[in-house]
Design a protein around this nucleic acid. Structure first.
Lengths: 229, 229, 229, 229
DNA sequence: CATGAATGAGGGTTCATTCAT
DNA sequence: TATGAATGAACCCTCATTCAT
């Protein structure tokens, strides 16, 4: 986290530095980001940078933190009421909010994506220990409420499921870009179609009638229940 | 891909270079890998390297390709017969084979992981266009056979589902390491427990009775069907 | 030496600065010491530092001075009476006191050692001109008293001899650490054994009977007397 | 030690680099030496430097090694015959040779001095493990021969004594410069006078008649003998 | 076809000191 | 008197690529 020196800076200068850093971290994978470029863009001296932050990682964590806070605030404002609609519809809303965030804060969103997919595992873990609660627990929270209302299978492992949901949500976006790369986020309909497919799986599963017909008596049941917990 | 000069090399020398490169790409995220270290380990001249490969990326793609081929071969040999057991049990076998591959070819496995999680998106896409078909279609193939046998819901989008399955499988391993970091792959039981949870979700979905009771008459059905094909 | 501003400081703050500086100068060779670290540890402002001291060297000299005074005071208190025992036994006492000082004031002792061995010759000379008298004259004083009592050869150059004694004393400790590095000062017996060897040489010299037998008539005598003065 | 790359260089270029490095290491304490200055003076690229040497320390060790070899060669050539004269006269010759070396190879001599007095203890130890045998054993060798001829007290610890002799020799020079700083080595007579004083002490010891008269019966003898071996 | 020396921009980081407030 | 932000040169080191031999 920034040194006091940075926090004491005039707002305008602070913002200049944050902007320059966000630009850089959104534009390059962490290992390729350059302090030199950041300070040049922010128009501060090299030495000053190290008066503000311990090192590059310190700045990075700070920007990640800002991005996370911004996202959380955005979500909280956009999704004030979960009560009226069912869990899977809420998931849809959350997803839409995520897309919207990507549109409104492409830089922060991009930074988060780069981190999430970052190859620097140890850095990632360090960041996670700091920020994970905020983002990951979001789904867990929703799941818990849904469980209370009986909207989800009572026996599933909520924490595990929330993790899978997170990953699946990301996968939907990835799949979209894989199939329609470079189209941007213009055609929301296609994206939503994929989301529906994903939600269908999560909701109903994919086992077909043939499966139950053929295997239901051969101890599969036990196998299944062991997966509940 | 390597230049002809490389292919003309004696097998022993080729292997030395491949080994050195695999070591390097397994040890560092791509952006941190160093040609200097590779040529030193392989004991070849700097100039020679550039007569064998266009550049670092060229070598990287080549190693990725080898890793992919090795993995595919390993799977094909280990999973010769899918006919006798049901689809979800096969998924389990495939998963186990993946773990086994990790154990037998930790370097290649590690390289694949680093790539998959690599922050260098453009590089990744370049690689994907080349190698994804090989690994990803594996699940698709299985799904298609399962569909023929009616083991999976007839209306789901097989390609999309195979993508989700791939991601979920990876997520299971990630979750395991997140929860039991540094335990290695020793305790397969814990891992398999997570796998069962994942398969349970994929098989049955997570919608609970409360969901159907409350929302079944409010047009949710349509929503669901739109998620099928 | 410190500016008046420093001397005006409340005792507690002065001490904080002295402590921080002593820590730093004991921990690093002078050229590697950092004002940044010192002010951080002392919790004073960068600007304040330069209002208290001219620069790093100024502070360094001041700390060296304090260390010297402390050492001298320690010795004077511990060795109040030289009268009862012979000169060489006093040397032993002095040596022991030195070891004791090392134990009681490891920081100051370490600073002195770093300075003594410091590669920055010009800095060293500057310091010496200031502080050497205090420590070096200690041996000279002892030697003078011993000379008066006839305990040492009447014709030796006392000043020169005191210098050699100083160096030899240091060498004994160096030799000990060279032979038993990392043992610390725990085993005083070994150290004292080396000291005895040194004192033996200083007391008796190392010339053997064979030397006198073979060369006594060949003008060696004159050579010897020329060394007395 | 240098990489093969360096050894393959044309003699002229190698020498240019060695010269530039020797200049630098003679001019500054190790911690203040600058690779930048060295490469500028040697007129080589920054990258080239790191093709030749691992790092600054690697180069430093190399230069130290060269200096040591040069000194040893110089001594061996200048002191071919120890047989005809007594041990203490040989010491004188050795000392003179050292002075002469200082005059002929002031740079190498200066580097050695800086190292010897260097405050960077760990670096020094590293170097010592490499080069100490060559220089320190020189005195030991002489002492052993002298012991065989009975020229030195049969019971002294030769290794310990050789260490003390080394240190005393250095101290003589230090003392000279302390008393006649900035006179250079012009007035050899003064220096030799100090040497004689030192040799006198080493030869005869400094105990006076008064010492033996007063303390000889009070168990001092045992103390002395314990200092022998 | 093999070689390996040459390159120099760029990396992140530390530093003692100044000076306006 | 106290402050602490600003400075920018200097530090060591790494890098992928070129090219003359």
């Amino acid at each position: 986290m920034p040194k006091q020196t940075f926090l004491n800076l005039p707002v305008e200068k602070k913002q200049r530095i944050i902007d320059a850093a966000a630009d850089e971290f959104a534009a390059f994978p962490y290992l390729k980001t350059s302090i030199n470029r950041i300070i040049k863009k922010a128009d501060i001296a090299k030495g000053s940078f190290y008066q503000y932050f311990e090192n590059k990682k310190d700045l990075y964590k700070y920007i990640i933190d800002i991005a996370g806070e911004t996202k959380l605030k955005f979500f909280r404002e956009r999704l004030p009421e979960y009560k009226k609609i069912d869990f899977f519809s809420i998931l849809k809303e959350v997803f839409l909010a995520g897309i919207e965030f990507k549109r409104n804060y492409p830089r922060y969103s991009q930074i988060g994506d780069l981190l999430l997919k970052g190859e620097n595992e140890s850095l990632k873990n360090e960041i996670y220990d700091m920020s994970k609660p905020k983002t990951n627990d979001f789904y867990l929270e929703l799941l818990q409420k849904a469980a209370e209302k009986g909207e989800v299978d009572a026996e599933i492992d909520l924490e595990f499921t929330s993790y899978m949901l997170t990953e699946l949500t990301i996968s939907v976006v990835d799949y979209y870009f894989k199939k329609h790369s470079s189209e941007g986020l213009e055609d929301l309909n296609k994206m939503m179609a994929y989301l529906d497919k994903m939600l269908y799986i999560v909701k109903n599963g994919i086992a077909g009638e043939g499966y139950y017909a053929a295997y239901q008596d051969e101890g599969i049941k036990e196998n299944l229940s062991s997966g509940k917990n």
